[in-house]
Simulated scan of single mutants.
Amino acid sequence: MPDPSQKPRIALMGEFSAGKSTLTNLLLGSRPLPVKVTATRLPPVWISHGPEQAQVQMADGTVQDIAPAALDRVPLAQARRIDLQLPSEALELCDLIDMPGISDPNMPAEVWQTVLPEVDSVIWCTSATQAWRQSEAAFWSILSPQLKMPGTLMVTHFDKLTSERDRARVLRRLERETDGGFGAIFPIALPQALAAGEDVEAWKTSGADQFVEHLIDMLLNWETATASPPLCDDTIAQLAPVPDLQRPRLRPVRAVSAGVTPAEEDTAAEGTVRVLPRRVRSETQHATPRPRRGRQERRVK
């Protein structure tokens, strides 16, 4: 179903249970992906714009239709990829690819390696309570030079850090240890963002406003990024789960500060999910106008 030649492809990656599916649901303005620990072992989920439908690509090459509400029942041993279409406004600007956790021992590396050559940029999710593990740093040092657009580091579960001192310490450490390996670093409290509704202050406090503004600006101007060659087979072969051995140095990064209040990730109220890009485009239309269409610009569907 996806037509990867039309729009940027943004993969959400990180270690297992880092909040990738929750962030995907936030961006989509709905909850198509299961987020509970027992239900998140899915192959890559390629999400594109269109009428709501889903298909599963099986290991034997067959394709099976599946109800979007039944994604948590996809047989992991036989499934290699899920193609999901949704009429979400965010998907008019890009395709999102929710990737399995790189540290999940039940997910063979080749399942997600086959998708990586089609990825333009990555939103990397790292949990604030165990931010930027050595395995993440080693993986990112191999992957990041191959991307067409700079990656973005999302510090999820930021609401679990209850003191300002701890929050500042984590952000300083991430700035130091990633050393320019990301275009920007954004701490975010996903439960607060999900529950914000029309509460502008809660939306800003969660850290979602600055992240979404950054994402929209990147997508609207993505063709100005320096193109990198596609991932070669040798590079992909290196991108297997990496043990925590050492922290390779990468490249100065701006950490975008955000104040958050404690909240429990699993208790965000149903029915309060927002469609993100609408507000951002209306609030930033003078600063980051939609580019004019032309022969030299990619048309965003």
Rank of each mutant, 00 (worst) to 15 (best):
E270H: 03
P229W: 03
P277Q: 06
A269E: 15
K301D: 13
E297S: 10
W222I: 06
D217S: 14
E198I: 04
Q134R: 09
K20T: 06
S17H: 08
Q113F: 04
P44Q: 09
P289L: 07
L28C: 10
L171C: 06
A263N: 06
V212S: 13
E15R: 15
V280I: 15
Q146A: 04
Q134E: 05
N25M: 13
V200A: 13
C232Y: 05
L143M: 11
W124A: 00
I47K: 02
K204W: 15
S257N: 12
P248Q: 00
P75H: 00
R176Y: 05
V56T: 03
P87V: 10
E283M: 08
T178W: 07
Q53G: 05
Q285W: 13
S88F: 12
P262W: 00
S135M: 02
V119H: 03
S48R: 11
V256H: 13
P117V: 06
R81Y: 00
A70Q: 11
S103D: 12
A69H: 05
V63E: 03
D234F: 05
L215M: 12
A208D: 12
R73D: 05
T22I: 07
M218P: 00
S5I: 06
P51R: 14
E15W: 10
L239D: 06
P4W: 09
L161T: 04
S88R: 12
A77P: 06
H286S: 14
I102Q: 01
A79D: 05
D3V: 11
E264K: 05
A184G: 10
E265V: 13
D209S: 13
R278D: 14
I185V: 11
P34M: 02
R251G: 01
A39H: 10
A208I: 11
G294M: 00
R279H: 12
A287C: 09
S30P: 10
R133E: 09
L239R: 10
G14D: 11
R173E: 11
T40G: 09
I188M: 15
S48M: 11
P43M: 02
Q285M: 15
V155G: 08
G294P: 00
T284Q: 15
A70T: 03
F139D: 02
D199H: 03
L153K: 08
R31K: 11
R173I: 01
P32E: 03
T272V: 11
L245D: 12
N25V: 12
D199C: 02
T156L: 08
Q130Y: 08
V115G: 01
Q57D: 04
G183V: 02
V260T: 15
R251W: 01
A195R: 10
L23K: 04
I97V: 13
S206Q: 06
Q6T: 08
N221K: 03
T22P: 00
T152V: 14
S5P: 08
I10E: 02
P150Y: 02
P145N: 00
W124P: 00
T272H: 15
A109Y: 04
L96S: 08
W203E: 09
R254N: 12
T178D: 01
A67R: 14
G151S: 01
P145I: 02
L161E: 02
L33D: 07
P277E: 06
A77C: 04
E177L: 14
R295K: 13
R298T: 10
L12Q: 11
